[in-house]
Design a protein around this nucleic acid. Structure first.
Lengths: 295, 295
DNA sequence: TAATATAATTCGATTAAATCGAATGATCAA
DNA sequence: TTGATCATTCGATTTAATCGAATTATATTA
């Protein structure tokens, strides 16, 4: 794929926001013809019209609207980068900042927070997000460590991954699904199921298991967030394949019941951090000593 | 701020990934001198060195590592845009996709899901993320609607915001904090508190309230995720300022107790969708009829 | 309805930015 | 020491972006 010209995209953004080439041209301090030409080459390169030319006005097409959203985020990132580099935020802060992948069980996060609170009275800040975001924020020192469920997030040499342990995965459900214990896992066929989204490794493992055993459940919903997933299970919307440890509390109160184990499907959790020149002793001590088996 | 040259950034990314200007130059089909020059102008413009020149090798500086992460995300977005436009994914799907801001109480999400399940048996997909991400995914049809706690997400004309209702906000805590009821809100002074991160409007409102009343709590932790926040409260880590309706269940089981109301602090929830030419009837009917007061 | 203002576009000329090629310096490995 | 590898410097050249003048089309209004 021929690569996108980001200067053209920048011009497009200004045109879209000001509403016309004329206004954009005064703002950008270049002439109308230049802008018009650049816009045209962008459209040619993308292979679709970004504006609908109605009479003497420009109106965003659907493709244009999509492009504008992307352009906004792209250029926001760019200016963010510039300010970060300008301000040189390279200082150790009195706050420990932890990033968590959306799909990490809250109980694990909570366990880590409790552990840190016992060790030190420093302020803790929790952020969630996807892989790209969290890695970016770790690079720019906005995050000290990441809790993740896979270790190969980055090919970067000076990123450390420490395993927090492995857990088995089972199918859980409310009382009314208990009869599926008999003849498990075949009994799962065409039963309602609530799955993590395909962003997660766990989802792929589950799909693989279902495929191997030739099981075809009815997928009711997909979600990134395990706590929403659990709530949906408690509300009897469907069955939940989940790491065993993450539902212990709910199993104890009988809100959920174990239906059967997914053989060979496991979930492993990792604590990821970046090796830095200026080492924060609090953080390294946490990384060294924390272990989630202690949950 | 003089604006970033994204072509230079692209070259930088290739150099960083291949490890040398020489390798990058063969990959990009341009000469070493050109690349070297472009890299230099980028460094000049950013005002800091991205590589450390040691002998004949290049090694990323801290600033370089940060820049690389940003560059990766920026160019990922760019290619994503191109594929979306190429494939013209402009079709209505058999799945309803809902985006939720991280800070939305899970009970509200769950309520909406239940409502949809009652209305139709279509598959539901839930995604979380920040404002930029969700708006982008809505523009590119990867999301049908967004649950948000503020309405002014975008200046786009054809985005519809529908209020789901307003709730008051109070401070909650475990049993051991009940004594703070007396002399509220002054009693909050130097008490441990768990707050939402400053990404959210609610946090700003809370800060404003505390400032007005000259209260200085001890901030134990900050989090984006309301369910983690609640868990921390139940574990007695500190006090929680939260929308009343979102903790009803926990108050009922006596896991949390209301300490006092934050006068004039409120939280409003919105259902946001995009007006499209090809209208999905299921989605519009949901948007029209759903109302969270029915929780 | 003709005159004026506004907006986008086209076209050849011009300018600025990027690239090349040849040469230089620096380092490593044999 | 010699050849190989890699980054850099410098003037020449090519390519891409921009300008200015002119053109077309369409609203606005006198």
């Amino acid at each position: 794929m021929a690569w996108l010209n980001y200067h053209h995209l920048m011009y497009f953004k200004t045109i879209a926001q000001t509403g016309s080439i004329a206004k954009a041209s005064t703002k950008l301090l270049i002439g109308q013809p230049a802008l018009s030409a650049q816009l045209k080459t962008l459209e040619d390169q993308l292979g679709c019209a970004l504006f609908e030319r109605r009479n003497r006005g420009l109106f965003l097409t659907d493709a244009g609207k999509i492009t504008l959203k992307y352009a906004n985020q792209i250029f926001n990132l760019g200016t963010e980068l510039q300010t970060i580099l300008k301000d040189q935020i390279f200082s150790a802060s009195p706050t420990i900042k932890i990033g968590a992948l959306d799909s990490i069980p809250k109980s694990l996060i909570l366990n880590l927070v409790n552990f840190i609170r016992k060790k030190t009275k420093v302020k803790i800040r929790l952020l969630e997000g996807n892989v790209d975001e969290l890695l970016r924020e770790m690079a720019s020192m906005q995050i000290d460590m990441i809790i993740s469920n896979y270790s190969g997030m980055s090919d970067n040499k000076n990123i450390f991954s420490k395993s927090l342990g492995k857990t088995s995965v089972s199918v859980y459900g409310s009382k009314k699904f208990l009869f599926l214990k008999k003849n498990f896992p075949d009994s799962l066929n065409s039963q309602p199921m609530i799955l993590p989204t395909s962003h997660s490794k766990l989802r792929h493992d589950i799909d693989h298991y279902l495929h191997l055993n030739n099981i075809h459940p009815q997928i009711v919903a997909e979600t990134q967030d395990t706590s929403v997933q659990k709530s949906m299970g408690v509300e009897e919307l469907g069955l939940l394949p989940l790491p065993d440890f993450s539902v212990r509390a709910l199993v104890k109160n009988k809100h959920l019941h174990k239906i059967g184990m997914l053989k060979d499907v496991t979930e492993e959790y990792w604590l990821i951090s970046q090796q830095r020149e200026i080492d924060n002793p609090i953080i390294s001590s946490i990384i060294d000593s924390y272990n989630f088996s202690a949950v």
